[in-house]
Amino acid sequence: MLYHRAEGPASAPPLLLGPSLGTSTTLWDAVAPELSISHRVVRWDLPGHGRSPDDLIGPGATVADLAALVLALADSLGIERFAYAGVSLGGAVGLHLAVHHPERVTSLAVICSSAHFGGSKPWEERAALVRREGLGPVAATADQRWFTPGFTVPALVEDHRTTDPDAYAACCDAIAAFDIREDLPSITVPTLLIAGREDPATPPAHLREIADAVPGSSLVEIAGASHLAPAQCPEAVLTALRAQLTGGAKRGMEVRRQVLGDAHVDRAQARQSPFTARFQDFISRYAWGEIWTDPTLARRERSMITMTALVAHGHYDELAMHVRAALRNGLTPEEIGAVLLQTAVYCGVPAANSAFAVAQRVLAEETGDAPAGA
């Protein structure tokens, strides 16, 4: 059986994390503890890597063989269906599972990986080198293949040096034979692709190729990240995975459009730039995907609270937007006027006066009538 490390509540939704070639569960040290707050996280080691036995695969191994070992691990833990995220070879295993065992996978994140790895010859040559000379020559170049200049994770480099050469070579055989491009359009599970912009092993173009072929998939490119993005840029990877696992960004965008209207959201999206992209994602995922979707309060009530808070802080441009939202959420002009009258008591008459002026203009545009309290 593959060595594994489980974290998080046993009753939480399961999430399996796959490693890249030459690494171990250590690859996820900066990410897994945070994910285990909401998920039953299971990290696993490739054969001959970390603490997994080295005789689980042999020469001529395939990604299908590795995927079978992952399914056997899940079965042994009583996990029928699971979310999956994997880096490089671990990502290839995830793609195989999504194509050939979609009934087992609830969502997929493919990180710094590919639907093919540049043809078989380089991997056949690497396998032959490792079988002949061991891992020393390959491990010596790990930093430049895995990280940007000046960055390293010594524990991962040590993983590379201490991996079993025969098992490593067998994994190279699996990569050499892997090409799932023709099957990508058949993937139906929610799929996220994460690329490191500085990744020389699987450049962003490889992830774009998958994103273009998998229906409904999404792509995130992480600036400053090389091949082992979870180790080098853990916060960025966490942000993307949380959005994928909770569906917050997608659900939040739906609610945002329902409340604010397509025209407003389309304008905001059109103005989005690389500088503002993370902020827009934060708004959709957190404000709209978590707060506005909380069923404790109805949207009518949330509109009343929001308008009051905006008046209190003098955010009148935002108030205009949320007066329109209040109408969509079922408030009448009279009820909006009553909310603003309440703000005169607790936020001050000058603030309420400005708020009434804003609301009167908006309501005249939207309904042709002014609020009763104006």
Rank of each mutant, 00 (worst) to 15 (best):
A236G: 07
L340I: 11
A140E: 14
A61M: 12
P274H: 05
R81Q: 14
L193K: 05
Y346W: 11
W288A: 09
V339P: 06
T62Y: 01
E133M: 10
A30G: 10
S217F: 06
A225L: 01
D369E: 12
T26N: 08
R5G: 11
S120M: 08
S113M: 05
P59N: 02
P215F: 01
K250G: 07
T163V: 15
M307D: 02
Y346R: 01
I222M: 02
I210L: 06
P190Y: 12
D266F: 09
R242D: 02
E133Y: 04
G58I: 06
V93A: 00
A240L: 06
A139S: 13
V259L: 12
R267E: 13
A270K: 10
R278M: 06
D55G: 11
L310T: 07
D29G: 06
E124Y: 15
E182H: 07
R5Y: 11
L89Y: 14
G94I: 05
A249Q: 10
P154C: 12
A74N: 01
W44V: 08
F147H: 05
R126A: 14
D266T: 05
R257Y: 04
A211C: 12
R208A: 15
V311C: 12
D45N: 12
H100D: 11
A109H: 04
A170P: 01
L21H: 06
G261S: 02
P234E: 15
G248K: 00
S52M: 08
A109W: 04
A213E: 07
G314D: 08
T188D: 10
V311I: 15
V70G: 01
A359I: 02
S38R: 09
A240V: 07
E7I: 14
R285M: 00
V70W: 03
